[in-house]
């Protein structure tokens, strides 16, 4: 089982992250302070650390340095309210694997977390399967019942995002951010998301896939059995 340590002083946020991740069979531990995190780290091993940089009694960067010094191989995703390029570079230089700016969508965090786990712990095996769907992330290949389905780059990203968050309602804003916004900062219109989801859905159904993508009125979508 994947064990995640959430180092976040904002109790409410830590709780919701934990609640979201537990549904994906992660074991979550929460530390609200720097010293608390140090104590927990001394006694437990974690696959992933979700780390807030600004803690009441210390700096998250120091914690990264501590982990590197102790040769602890946990993957690190920094959660920071500071989106300065400088801060990002500092965190990544110190040894963080990913950087997510607050506020973030839980579905986005989950997708990043899964991607990090795949990169760090399943080297050479980057395949994901969901019933009749098989995805090879390195090759950017999708197989439906072992027959290749050709998707555009955006559709591929979209499918991956859905499969990372199966069973969860995903907001249009989250999809917009993950697929477009992170680069263009454009307000993604509902039409664009709708068009892309519609195209993906059609392609999947035509390829003989079950219709997993459900529209949730006024909110977004859900990929579910």
């Amino acid at each position: 089982m994947t064990h995640v340590l959430i180092v976040e002083d904002e109790v409410n946020l830590a709780k919701e992250i934990s609640n979201y991740l537990i549904d994906f069979n992660y074991k979550c531990t929460i530390a609200h302070t720097y010293n608390n995190a140090l104590k927990i780290l001394a006694e437990n091993e974690f696959t992933i650390l979700l780390l807030d940089l600004k803690l009441p009694d210390g700096n998250g960067l120091q914690l990264i340095q501590y982990l590197k010094k102790k040769k602890i191989t946990s993957g690190i995703i920094v959660l920071s309210a500071n989106d300065e390029l400088d801060m990002r570079i500092q965190a990544l230089d110190a040894g963080a694997d990913d950087f997510l700016t607050k506020p973030f969508h839980l579905s986005e965090l989950n997708a990043r977390l899964k991607s990090l786990i795949r990169r760090n712990f399943h080297k050479g095996n980057t395949e994901i399967a969901y019933n009749e769907i098989k995805i090879d992330i390195d090759k950017k290949q999708v197989l439906i019942n072992d027959i290749e389905l050709v998707l555009t780059a955006k559709e591929f990203k979209l499918l991956l995002y859905f499969i990372s968050n199966t069973g969860k309602v995903i907001t249009k804003e989250a999809i917009g951010y993950s697929i477009w916004r992170s680069n263009s900062d454009m307000d993604v219109s509902n039409e664009i998301i709708y068009t892309h989801v519609k195209n993906l859905r059609k392609k999947l159904i035509v390829a003989g896939c079950k219709d997993y993508i459900k529209s949730i009125y006024g909110v977004g979508y859900k990929f579910d059995d």
Partner: peptide, 16 residues
Amino acid sequence: QTPIAVISSKIEQCMQ
């Protein structure tokens, strides 16, 4: 940012 992040996570959870 932090309160926005909290509200955002609460809404997202609520939607589930």
